[in-house]
Amino acid sequence: MSAAPGITPPILQISGLGKRFGGFVALADIELEVGRGERLGLIGPNGSGKSTLVNCLCGTLRNESGSVRFEGKVLDGAPAHQRTRAGLARTFQLPRPFGTLTLAENLRIPILYAVQSRDGRAAADIDRRCVALLETVGLADKAARLPKDLTQIEMRKLELARAMAAEPRLLIADEAMAGLSHGEVDDILALLVRLNEEQGITIILIEHIMRAVLSFSQRLVVLVAGRKIADGDPRDVVRQDDVVAAYLGS
């Protein structure tokens, strides 16, 4: 089933997307639409092409075939920074903070470069906005610290805050919760749901923790060996035979 039928056009349309590394087909013929305001879960075994898909969407990698449309505009060939400016932000699977900048300065970058470029004028109250964002993820007391002083979960929160600072309309969270404890996962989940419900940000969540994916997602997509094998209601999808087989073996 395709999301958001009717009046509102999908925020993201992927058609016939393909990517290969040498002879290895990482993604083949991916078709996917994401509706505005939707919470989409994307799962798949290791090496199934999830991160490659994210990289193709965000411009870190170039897809060889197919096309990506974001809010109706074709993104193919656009460099990553233009996509971020267009409103498509991502977090990295392994946090990549700017090591020599303080936490507040880390958040300043997307405001200076993504938000300001989009609005075409200098952003007001940048300092206050950085602090407010840090408060949202519970890092306000460390605003003047460097990323090396953070714990793993704090690093992931910073990664998320930096993506939020770009004021995206579509946020792709690439394994934002890997390695976190039960409670920590719930914290991040609650944050993502709040972003989605209060600010209407469309979110694609890539995750291995099934409990998190199932509680978060309104729709679930499964990738296996670079192909989409399932797309639909999370409860139904996880019962599908080929999905079970992909995870547990047939």
Binding site: C58, G59, T60, P79, A80, H81, Q82, T84, R85, A89, R90, F92, R96, P97, F98, G99, T100, L101, E105, R108, I109, P110, L112, Y113, A114, V115, S117, R162, A163, A165, A166
Partner: peptide, 21 residues
Amino acid sequence: YGFATIRDDELAAEASGVPTL
């Protein structure tokens, strides 16, 4: 600030909207 992000991490800089090139 843009220069500093290039020094620290170019991929993350691009993802934050910095036109690195």
